[in-house]
Design a protein around this nucleic acid. Structure first.
Ligand code: NAD
Ligand code: NAD
Lengths: 251, 251
DNA sequence: ATGTCTTTGTGAACGCGTGCACAAAGATGG
DNA sequence: CCATCTTTGTGCACGCGTTCACAAAGACAT
């Protein structure tokens, strides 16, 4: 999944493919688990299984970082944890602001998994005056009037948007203007940002629709157009080799 | 090798590329907005701009569904909304269960965007006895003992997992055994599922780490800009703080 | 030292996704 | 009915990502 819509083919990230970058956190998680169990070394095969990827892919991914393995043995867990952490920039602290402290924003604020990887919730911001001053997850919610000052004072470069979709773009604009250069957007909106700003989106609705697509396909396709309510019959489809389905051409 | 996990890369369902399927919800959202403004037709250029994609890509995506446009005019908005909805399986009702009604699960339950696309929260399930019976988003939380019965009675085929990571796999196993064939996983865990079951994951932590990577690269480009060779020798961390990380070279 | 065994690192082939560029299709106006 | 203009649908080329397969590298035993 590409980061942004802005075409930037030139600035390759230090030669590390985007697909590899997206998998590094996965490896890091698996390695951290091994580290906690005091496992000293791990082979590409084992680690790949733990991370749910192909072992050749894992080795190639690591090859972009350098030669950190030992042939015949595998990878030193602690060393690899450090290398990946450093590559991802997790050896430093990243202050993060969350804008829009509603259902989702509050849940994120309460999420403990933030701090565990060097991400620190620097501030919670909401436009609702009734919300300002209230404590969420032990942090006082601040009014959005303070947004620019908060960003500036804390040196925030990563912002999380959990506002209603209608105001997401303007919130985004203010964040960017204030100096934020990376945005994680939960609002179902396409954000426009200037060059040099990264946007990643998390969209529950899209994920469900993708699942529904495949679900419908699995449920069998006798004739489209009738609402078979009970499609829950667990039919053991004999794993056909991707049979070709007649394409429905419109009149 | 006990893990019989067969990785299915990109099952081409009915000839529609996975990348296209992932964009259909995006188009649908833009089209729905146009529909609400009573716009009768839209060109690929306009719609692509609204969806934040390339117009050629959009046209090619639509070409997989069939020829639904009119040359010289564009696409009929209402017709396209229907075609995409049908293709995604949104013309039918999809009962969904959410397992793990904590911070995140409750936020999802409260999310209004569910029902708007044909997804209906059929049940909320939690293992905590203190949680069972409580109302969340107007729905009574049920104990996980009832899981199998709930799935069966409601014909649920889509499950959302928002439990702690430690129990995600067993919850997943139970869901699958009960008949669920699509899972949206919010827990930071790699889930193993049998063939025929789709899993999509949403991982906040991974998204943030990817952003951090690019953020670090952006910050490093401006200050330093000369480290050309950096593959073989583990170079020293450019910044002094955070020197507490054990740099251990493997033998 | 030498041989064997394990596992890495990577060259190469392949498939998928993307975007350009343009011919074909149809609307529109005269 | 014909000319012109707009926009679709797609052939094609290219680059990225994935996977295979294997030589090289090192550990370990003898
Ligand atoms: N809740 C979910 O599970 C969920 C799932 C998927 C997507 N989303 C999306 O996430 C976003 C938030 O969802 P939610 O359920 O938390 O909504 P919510 O209404 O509970 O919260 C939105 C919050 O944003 C604040 N806000 C409004 N305008 C603002 C502004 N200009 N600046 C700062 N804050 C502002 C509101 O005061 C409110 O507290 C929505 O865009 C929603 O579509 C939510
Ligand atoms: N909160 C977030 O913003 C956030 C963000 C990213 C990821 N996550 C992940 O989402 C998951 C949930 O996060 P949370 O903050 O809501 O945690 P939480 O502790 O608030 O909620 C977990 C809920 O799951 C229930 N549960 C535990 N075991 C269960 C079982 N076997 N069956 C059914 N229910 C069970 C618990 O009773 C609890 O209500 C975690 O895996 C977390 O890592 C959360």
């Amino acid at each position: 999944m590409a980061t942004g819509r802005t075409h930037r083919p030139a600035t390759r990230s230090r030669g590390i493919p985007e697909a590899t970058v997206a998998r590094l956190p996965l490896y890091l998680r698996a390695l951290t688990a091994l580290s906690e169990r005091s496992v000293p070394t791990v082979s590409s095969e084992e680690l790949a299984a733990a991370a749910g990827v192909n072992s050749a892919k894992l080795r190639k991914d690591f090859s972009y970082l350098g030669s950190y393995g030992t042939r015949g043995v595998g990878y030193d867990v602690e060393y690899l944890v450090y290398q990946i952490s450093r590559e991802l920039g997790l050896t430093q602290d990243w202050p993060v602001v969350i804008v829009g402290i509603g259902n989702l924003g509050a849940a994120l604020a309460n999420y403990g998994g933030f701090a565990s990887r060097g991400f620190r919730v620097a501030a919670l911001i909401d436009a609702d005056p009734a919300m300002a001053g209230r404590q969420v997850a032990g942090i006082a919610v601040q009014h959005s009037d303070e947004l620019e000052k908060i960003i500036s004072d804390n040196g925030v470069s990563i912002g999380v948007i959990t506002t209603p979709p209608g105001v997401a773009q303007q919130v985004c604009d203010r964040l960017v203007a204030a100096g934020v250069t990376s945005i994680l957007n939960f609002a179902p909106t396409v954000l426009s940002v200037p060059d040099g700003v990264d946007v990643r989106k998390v969209d529950l609705s899209i994920e469900l629709q993708i699942l529904a697509f495949h679900e419908q396909r699995k449920a069998g396709e006798e004739t489209a157009g009738e609402d078979a309510v009970a499609a829950s019959v667990p039919k053991e489809t004999p794993k056909g080799p991707d049979g070709d389905v007649p394409v429905v051409m419109p009149a």
